[in-house]
Design a protein around this nucleic acid. Sequence first.
RNA 1: UCCUGAGUAGCUCAGCGGUAGAGCGGGUGGCUGUUAACCACUAGGUCGUAGGUUCGAACCCUACCUCAGGAGCCA
Length: 453
Amino acid sequence: MPDTLRHILASDSPLSSITVRGWVRTRRDSKACSFIEITDGSCFKGLQIVVDASLPCAALMPGILTGASIEVDGDLIASPAAGQTWEMQAKDLRVVGEADATYPLQKKGHTPEFLRTISHLRPRTNLFSNVFRVRSRMAFAIHRFFQDQDFFYVHTPVITSSDCEGAGELFRVTTLKQGSNAKPEDDFFGRPTYLTVSGQLQGETFACALGNIYTFGPTFRAENSNTARHAAEFWMIEPEMAFCDLFDDMSLAEASVRYLVAAMIKECPEELEFFNKFVDKELVGRLQQTLEKPFERISYTAAVDLLLKSGRSFEHPVIWGEGLLTEHERFIAEEHVRGPVTIYNYPKDIKPFYMRQNDDGKTVAAMDLLVPGIGEIIGGSQREDKLDVLRAAMQHHGLNEEDYSWYTDLRRYGSVPHAGFGMGFERLLMFVTGVSNIRDVIPFARTPGHAPY
RNA sequence: UCCUGAGUAGCUCAGCGGUAGAGCGGGUGGCUGUUAACCACUAGGUCGUAGGUUCGAACCCUACCUCAGGAGCCA
């Protein structure tokens, strides 16, 4: 493996006779020499290469346009000019792959909308190389957070026959020909199957065996959602803990957000600086604030109360028993609390069947963690662990108990209080990068009418 | 899916009834240890698509398509 620019640029002394590879960002010609800046993706910074005009390889300059890939032999020396600590004095240079004038990425002035139309080339830009390096490091930090606390990573199925009621529209998985009259029994699995909308129900079975578990994988929703915060395919982290109530659940959710924000600050300083400068000037301040004070917790009923007493006239009325709308959540997170906030104990009629009923008979032990700018980043609950209450809830929601016998068995044999949540990985990335559209934190985003790669 | 706005050169945009423009990117020449380099010249466009109004449409009207912002749904 050749050495990366990340490693080379971190050198504390000059290096002689090294070879670097990368893609050309820009070239400037001077009388005595040419300057080529290359990046190799290993870090945000690039390396300036100085090619003396007297070298035989200087004849290659006209073919070295933005986007070309090159390989350079030379010495790493202290740069005599401002702008960079190190630069490379070239001895020899080879063009690995040319790029002609049709290369769409220029040195400046591209909108995220345009770059979305060239998703295969945008990782070569400053913005997107930073986003995707952060995506990788955050994914790793998530595993570390849970593994350090003895959680087990469980791979729940991508193809399921349960629809985790309430989690949204499903993508059908079938091998039947379109328009065929074949029955579901004739299909590949002998029954209707779908892409998973949540691994929670299966995750519960493993929590009720291994104790603390988490899933981290792709999730699919066939909702016709057209917003900056929704995608048809996204990644979700779903921890599930046995012998755990809603308040333990909220504590873990808050701790995970704080851990991941801290990881961003510590492990991605160059990327963070870039985002703060070019994407969202309040990003660093907001992340630091997240670490400074404990997250607030407000019950749903108290939230409705404070909205009613806020004196604010909302477009949609605030009514106990109905869901909090975006404008309500934004008011609470961005104006009232001015920071992350957890809202808990929601009315039972607006929540799925599996959530634990509270003693008041009106609410369930559900919680949403809201962050400024994004809204809901985590949604979770304590699960109903009493068999009779769960069966009644399933009946109330019109579910066929036979289909969920494996799920109710968890309450039949050694039932325990347990709880968990789902964290939207892309929403977390939006929060820590300041990037405002979910399509820009996913390598190849899938949204309604859009899956071109 | 609903509401609002926008589609003009490879990219970012100006032009808003009377012969299609600029900056960047490309080419050519010049200058320079340059830093989104600079200066000059140059090539590049059925103005999203289809109809309509008008002597005349990039511009006004209608439909459709695409994108963006907001809403619903949620992670």
